[in-house]
Simulated scan of single mutants.
Amino acid sequence: MLLQPKPKNARSKRFLTNRDPKVVENQKTAIFIRGSSTSQVILDTLKDLYSLRKPNAINFTKKNEIHPFDDETGVEFFSRKNDSSLFAVGMHSKKRPHNLILGRTFNYQVLDMIELGVESCIPMHQIKSQACAVGMKPLMIFNGEAFSQDENLMLLKNILLDFFRGESADMVSLKGLELVITVTAGPRKSNGEPGLVFLRTYTTSFKKSGVRQPRVELEEMGPSLDLSIRRTRHPVEDMWKQAIKVPKELKETKVKNISRDGLGDKYGRIHLGKQDITKIQTRKVKALKKKLDNRPSKQMELD
């Protein structure tokens, strides 16, 4: 592990201050590490994932003797040195061909990770379509009930959402939606384990529809990956509680009798005291007027 150096001038002090914990953290940086032995499938996969993650990504082109599931020190060293909390490691061996590891770190320590086998890869340069702009916030779509039932697929979904979440935005314009990533869970194996996971990437094109809103069509951009789940490491409970802890400054102060529904609509509850119905002002209608006791009625006048 690297020791925290002391700043020697104002510039180094600002640099170290930028790494300190904040109420609103900086955007997460992802590092893409190449193992000691890789295949062309893994190189294409890492290159395309890096292009989707730019500009908040660092790509390592040199080989590194690194095995996260056996020894975490290598990943933690690169994480601290580059101030990154996301990592992707690609390697290839006879026992685990076309191996891809995605994971996260907290406080420069490995939080969780998942090992995937790239069964099939169609890179971007083989798909003749227009690529989206750099740094676009994608629309993530997860198809299949297994993403809410299987623990390993739930972990994969959480890591992928963290990997491609981009900048936080309250509203997104339709014209700004250029990137769509779909992740589909295939049928389970005969032994009950999760099957293949299909990751597809699309760009949007707007066509005339005859109305104000255009017709949106999807065009495959790449990469197109077929993934199989191999090994997983779930987060430790104590570290996970620290990682998801929300600062007091960001917690919303609870206002009495005000609530919000799942869509964010605001509702207020008003408590009124007991009302005297006899004093309520009503419409002045002749039939509701009180008759005077000394006033003769029309029937008596006729008599």
Rank of each mutant, 00 (worst) to 15 (best):
Q109I: 01
N59L: 14
V118K: 05
L116T: 09
L139M: 10
A146T: 08
F163Q: 01
S84T: 15
E65A: 11
E167I: 03
G176D: 11
N143V: 14
L160Q: 04
F164A: 01
L139A: 10
L155R: 05
E119N: 11
Q109M: 05
G74H: 07
I159A: 01
N56P: 02
M136T: 15
K94D: 12
N152R: 09
I66H: 04
I66K: 01
T105V: 10
K95V: 14
I114L: 06
N107C: 06
P55N: 13
N158F: 07
G144Q: 01
E151Q: 10
H92W: 07
M124E: 15
I141G: 06
N99W: 12
G74Y: 04
F147H: 03
L86F: 15
R53N: 12
Y108N: 04
S84E: 08
G166I: 03
C121T: 07
M91R: 02
S120W: 04
K175N: 10
M124R: 14
V118Y: 06
S148K: 07
K94C: 02
S85Q: 12
I58T: 11
F106P: 02
E65K: 06
G144S: 02
F77T: 15
R165K: 07
F78P: 00
R53H: 12
M140G: 04
E76Y: 10
L86Q: 03
S84M: 09
V134Y: 00
L116K: 06
T105Y: 07
G103N: 03
E72S: 12
S84P: 03
F87I: 02
K157F: 07
F60T: 01
L156Q: 03
I66Q: 02
D70G: 06
T73A: 13
L139T: 10
N152V: 11
V134R: 04
A88F: 15
Q126S: 14
G103H: 07
R104I: 05
L155S: 03
H125I: 08
L102S: 06
G103W: 11
Q149K: 13
V75A: 08
K157V: 01
T73V: 09
L161P: 00
L174D: 02
S85K: 06
M124K: 14
L116I: 10
L160D: 01
M136K: 12
K94E: 14
I101L: 05
V89R: 00
P68N: 04
N158Q: 09
L100W: 11
L111E: 08
L100Y: 13
E145S: 08
M154F: 14
D162G: 15
D112M: 05
R53D: 10
N107I: 09
F147V: 01
